[in-house]
């Protein structure tokens, strides 16, 4: 009797956990930090943020179930991110890699970004080594395949893309602990890609759609970008940028936040030129930081725009 009593505490020490505090896990794993960062760094994107929060919750619970010895499956983590250029897919993928790393679903958490050309070769026997090279590099992290549908070229039945697809599918299925794949691209093309490649569709558990930004959101994003670089808009420049956004959206090669980033790069260039040409005497920090109306309004977007303009660099492409 007494000996049994004495043994009890030891047994308790030896047994596995019996309860897990999800709140505490949420904080100690660093998931909270990543999600807060996501909220802070990315303007808008409410539906995307919601989906990521849900995914994080699922993974936290799954991890807790595993630790308590409940039936659990290694969740399928491959995803597709669909949306127009510049809607934040690559940026979110980086955060996702970080999140999966902190939750212990990938061991390293790096992101390897590729397109068709990195995976598919030019001649017979070239594709498999190329694809495998990339897969090896991405293992322990996340492989992000931009415009994934270019892998599939039905018009050419000898296309080497098919070989890359087969290798990818095999690794996505058999090495789910080693690698997470995110396919990205335009929503409609991705839909068609999945229709003709059911192998991919069935291996992807999470589809996240990235909506276009509203004019307001783009302005917000612009201010956020400038703020990070210690620049600011004068009130007149802000009004000019609003007009810019409205006009830019209707012109070719519009790429949401990326168009904004490019426009701001140009505005900074013009500001520097303006200061250099016109400044008399020393400039203070405020002068060096202020983007003025003229720095925005000088854009080609206001003068006939990018229609027919070769290169269209102002907008940037996909």
């Amino acid at each position: 009797m007494s000996s049994a009593e004495a043994a009890t505490p030891e047994v308790e020490e030896e047994t596995a956990e019996t309860a897990i505090d999800l709140r505490a896990e949420y904080e100690s794993s660093g998931v909270k930090e990543v999600l807060e960062e996501l909220d802070r760094d990315l303007i808008g994107l409410a539906p995307v943020k919601k989906r990521i929060r849900e995914t994080a919750a699922l993974l936290l619970v799954e991890r807790a179930r595993k630790r308590l010895g409940l039936a659990h499956q290694t969740p399928t983590l491959h995803m597709s991110f669909t949306g127009n250029p510049g809607t934040g897919k690559t940026t979110v993928a980086m955060k996702m890699a970080d999140l999966l790393h902190r939750l212990g679903y990938v061991r390293k958490g790096h992101l390897v970004t590729v397109t068709r050309d990195d995976l598919v070769g030019q001649y017979i026997g070239h594709t498999a080594p190329k694809t495998k090279e990339i897969l090896k590099k991405a293992m322990g992290g996340v492989l992000f395949i931009d415009e994934a549908y270019y892998l599939y070229r039905p018009e050419n039945e000898r296309d080497y893309g098919q070989e890359a697809i087969e290798i990818l599918l095999q690794v996505m299925e058999n090495q789910r602990d080693d690698l997470v794949v995110i396919l990205a691209g335009y929503a409609d093309r991705m839909d068609r890609f999945f229709e003709s490649n059911p192998g991919f569709r069935s291996r992807i558990a999470h589809h996240i759609d990235f909506p276009d930004y509203s004019d307001d959101e783009l302005l917000h994003i612009a201010e956020h970008m400038l703020d990070e670089q210690n620049y600011s808009l004068t009130p007149a420049a802000e009004a000019a940028l609003k007009d810019y956004i409205e006009a830019r959206r209707r012109q070719p090669h519009f790429a949401n936040a990326r168009s904004i980033r490019n426009a701001l790069d140009r505005a900074r260039l013009r500001q520097a030129n303006r200061l250099f040409e016109n400044a008399e005497g020393p400039l203070d920090a405020a002068a060096l930081s202020a983007i003025d109306e003229t720095d925005i309004r000088a854009s080609r977007v206001f003068t006939g725009g990018l229609n027919g303009a070769k290169g269209g660099e102002e907008g940037g492409s996909a």
Partner: peptide
């Protein structure tokens, strides 16, 4: 077998090649 693996971050990449 193949090239030296300079830029593989995780051992799974090497094991993948070993199995090949």
């Amino acid at each position: 077998w193949g090239h030296p693996m300079f830029d593989v971050a995780d051992a799974a990449g090497v094991l993948y090649e070993l199995n090949e």
